[in-house]
Design a protein around this nucleic acid. Structure first.
Lengths: 153, 153
DNA sequence: CGGATATATTTTAGGTTTAAAAGAAACGAG
DNA sequence: CTCGTTTCTTTTAAACCTAAAATATATCCG
């Protein structure tokens, strides 16, 4: 309110920081492993879902993307032999994705590098500050936009 | 660090928060004005650069995107009459982008809505917390990834 | 059983982004 | 003044993302 655009300034900083770090990680993944963050996220979700794998819908939900996106991002992973797609024997509509041995090997390497990069980027942030940061981020509510737009109508 | 993956947890929260809010703002912009955040960012940069406008290279730098992206994002804005593209009379290589009257009108409306949405999303964050958040974000260094990767090589 | 409805996923069309190649104009050395 | 280089921008090809249409299978009800 009489905030004098401090909220907007914080938002611009938040966006620039997260997009900058994301771009750096994505570039590092691509040049080091030939795979994007989007693909790493798929492998990460499938790793946590071992050994049963995940149906397409569950992957979509965990990755917080659209249905169509899941199909497209898994395609090159299947092509490269990191992920396997099977049809559920009990329900011909559902596709079940699991990691291959090769996928597990590649993911393990990528996960180590990822953790190292993030710890480097956050090296200047103390444990107490990390906790404080997460607490502050939790106060932000994207859903309030939808409410605000409805009120205006 | 004996940090025990606290940095990675903070990073995932940071990413989820900023991407969630960005998606909400983008959706609201599209449904309310038929223009994305990317286009709003162009208008915003041109608004601050009034009345002279900006060359393509300067736009690219301010938006922190690639050269080609500037060409593509400005295209629909030119098509819709919000932005004008002119060739620098002193140097035939440079393109100069300026806002039209219509562009200024549309941007003014969008900027008001944008500020309201952001203030709603940050309504639960006090002025002191906003400052604290910005201070914490400033401690994060994406550039450290590049250094880390070089060290490994 | 068979048609309507519901569910799960893929396809399609379009927007955003990048890196790399191509194009166009200016500059500089001989 | 002309050739070669540099600078500025656009084009191209490919990846990622979404919403909406299409497809395929399952279920329900008469």
């Amino acid at each position: 309110m009489s905030d004098d655009r401090e909220a907007v300034r914080a938002w611009l900083t938040l966006l620039a920081t997260s997009q900058g770090l994301k771009k750096a990680v994505d570039t590092a993944f691509r040049s080091g492993y030939g795979h994007s963050i989007a693909r790493f996220d798929v492998l990460s979700a499938l790793d946590r879902a071992r050994p049963g794998g995940l149906r397409a819908g569950a992957l979509t939900e965990r990755l917080m993307v659209s249905d169509g996106n899941t199909t497209q991002v898994t395609a090159p992973l299947i092509r490269d032999g990191l992920v396997k797609r099977a049809v559920d024997p009990d329900d011909g509509r559902v596709a079940i994705f699991t990691m291959t041995k090769k996928g597990e090997r590649v993911f393990a390497e990528m996960a180590v590098a990822h953790r190292r990069w993030i710890e480097d980027a956050f090296a200047g942030v103390s444990p107490a500050q990390l906790k404080s940061l997460r607490r502050l981020l939790a106060l932000i509510s994207p859903t309030d936009i939808a409410r605000s737009r409805k009120d205006a109508a």
